[in-house]
């Protein structure tokens, strides 16, 4: 073959006189035969082995992505639900806390008021008692004053007159 090419290059004009290779009919048959063989084999290999394999992988990936997306959206839904529940619980707890706080405040107020009232009543009573005592003491003291005055008067009169005056007379005199 190399020899043939050499001769050809030496005589290029003669070479070109020969058919332009792509239009040389003598090469058509072998090219067509081998094209049919090669393309048939390629078609069979691709359609039976390669394409199903690639398609399967792509489909699996698509499925996986779809499944993951579904799972993600499901989880998101769950999370949303949990958040809603949590917020509801929080709100109800807050409300309950408020109620309890109010109740406690009211109860405390009531107790305080009751105790205040009791204490007021007690102190009023004590004050009354104290006043009564004072009044009594005053009365006693006043009565004692009269008695002492009478005694003193009697003693003074006795000392002055040397005779004990009648008690009733002293009393009358003191009262006047």
């Amino acid at each position: 073959m190399a020899e043939q090419t050499n001769t050809e290059t030496q005589v290029p004009s003669g070479d070109h006189a020969k058919a332009f290779p792509p239009f040389d009919p003598s090469t058509f048959a072998p090219q067509l035969v081998w094209l049919v063989i090669c393309f048939s084999i390629l078609y069979l290999v691709l359609s039976r082995i390669a394409i199903p394999r690639i398609g399967e992988v792509l489909e699996q990936r698509q499925d996986r992505i779809q499944r993951d997306m579904d799972e993600a959206s499901r989880l998101k839904e769950e999370t949303d639900k949990a958040i809603t529940t949590y917020e509801e619980a929080l709100a109800s707890a807050r409300q309950k806390a408020n109620v309890i706080a109010d109740e406690t405040r009211q109860k405390l107020n009531e107790t305080i008021n009751a105790e205040n009232a009791e204490m007021d009543a007690k102190s009023a009573k004590k004050a009354e008692e104290a006043e009564a005592n004072i009044r009594k003491a005053k009365e006693t003291a006043l009565a004692d004053v009269n008695k002492i005055a009478a005694e003193t008067t009697t003693t003074i009169i006795e000392k002055l007159l040397g005779q004990k005056p009648e008690a009733s007379e002293v009393e009358t005199a003191l009262k006047s």
Binding site: V33, W34, L42
Partner: peptide, 24 residues
């Protein structure tokens, strides 16, 4: 019928082998 294995056939075979090998 001339069914000679030519350089054209060789490169067809190489192409088929390369494609099949690569894809598989």
């Amino acid at each position: 019928v001339d069914v000679s294995f030519t350089n054209s056939s060789l490169f067809m075979v190489i192409a088929v082998v390369l494609i099949s090998g690569f894809l598989i």
